[in-house]
């Protein structure tokens, strides 16, 4: 029983990270109807930046926040330069460019930092708490990702800029006609998504170790989370991320072993796409007259 609880808690800790990635994917999906295949690698690259800052002697938290800022600016810059010309291009063109970005970041990390696996520090003490139920880092990851998610929801719900981003994502023409600079909102959305990805990367790196390919599996879990929750529903994506985290741990521990985690995730993705394409909590817009 205690083992089960332990698996669930561990699942929630990684689930928070998947939830962040899922939310980042949904944010970009909502405003552009594109799936950002480079989301994971962007987070990985940002984590390397944090690693370098810490390596050069910066304390953890300043490095953390500086990385978030750099990731935000980098994401916004990417949107302005690389993605903007593609706003009206086909899915294929977009996917190819996303995949191009994905391997560019991956190889850039390899070039700059080599492929040697690195340890990434956790800001939290290295010990178990609650009778060994979970590690301090796991609790910390839950708190950090939870805080980020709450802040984001508050931002989207209660600030004019958050409202403008949502309006621009839903109906770009209408948004422009009320004076919202939609293309700036897209850049802002990309910046936010990149920042969230950076935080997810920094939270997961102490667990999986830092290397250029560390995010590819996590991206797939993020996809699965976003799809389970409904690709156009931020709340659902977050819930989906947690569900995937717990499911992954439970299935891994009791059913299929660690060998098939990715395959199981693939099955989940395909099953959701086939049988419940709107996701478990996908919002249907009720009427369109």
């Amino acid at each position: 029983m205690e083992a089960l609880l332990q698996q669930v808690v561990a699942g929630l800790a990684t689930g928070g990270i998947y939830a962040s990635i899922a939310l980042a994917l949904v944010m970009i999906y909502q405003s552009t109807h594109q799936i950002n295949f480079a989301q994971g690698e962007m987070g990985m690259f940002a984590t390397y930046i944090a690693w370098a800052l810490i390596h050069w002697g910066m304390p953890y938290w300043p490095a953390f926040f500086l990385t978030v800022v750099i990731a935000f600016l980098g994401g916004a810059f990417l949107q302005r330069t690389v993605l903007r010309p593609l706003e009206n291009a086909s899915h294929l063109a977009n996917i190819v460019v996303f995949v191009g970005l994905m391997i560019t970041f991956n190889s850039l990390a390899g070039l700059l930092f080599t492929y040697t696996i690195k340890t990434f520090p956790s800001p939290f003490p290295n010990r178990l708490i609650f009778d060994g139920l979970l590690s301090f880092h796991q609790l910390g990851a839950i708190v950090v990702t939870g805080t980020v998610l709450l802040l984001l929801f508050a931002f989207f719900k209660y600030t004019p800029v958050g409202l403008a981003i949502r309006a621009g994502a839903q109906n770009p023409l209408s948004a422009r006609l009320v004076g919202i600079r939609v293309s700036h909102m897209l850049a802002l959305g990309w910046g936010l998504a990149a920042a969230i990805g950076a935080i997810a990367g920094m939270m997961v790196a102490p667990i999986v170790f830092l290397e250029p390919n560390m995010m590819s599996g996590i991206l797939l879990y993020g996809f699965a989370g976003a799809l389970i929750g409904g690709i156009d529903n931020p709340w659902g994506a977050v819930a989906g991320g947690f569900i995937i985290g717990v499911l992954e741990n439970l299935l891994g521990a009791y059913v299929i072993g660690t060998e098939l985690k990715l395959t199981a995730t693939l099955m989940i993705i395909i099953a959701v796409l086939l049988f419940k394409p709107a996701g478990l909590f996908g919002q249907r817009i009720v009427k369109r007259v």
Partner: peptide, 25 residues
Amino acid sequence: AHVPVGRGTFLALTVEENLRAGAYL
């Protein structure tokens, strides 16, 4: 102010959020 054909409603936003978006400026 321009209200386009098809009304341009932000369907997933609430009524009040639609108006707040209208008052964006």
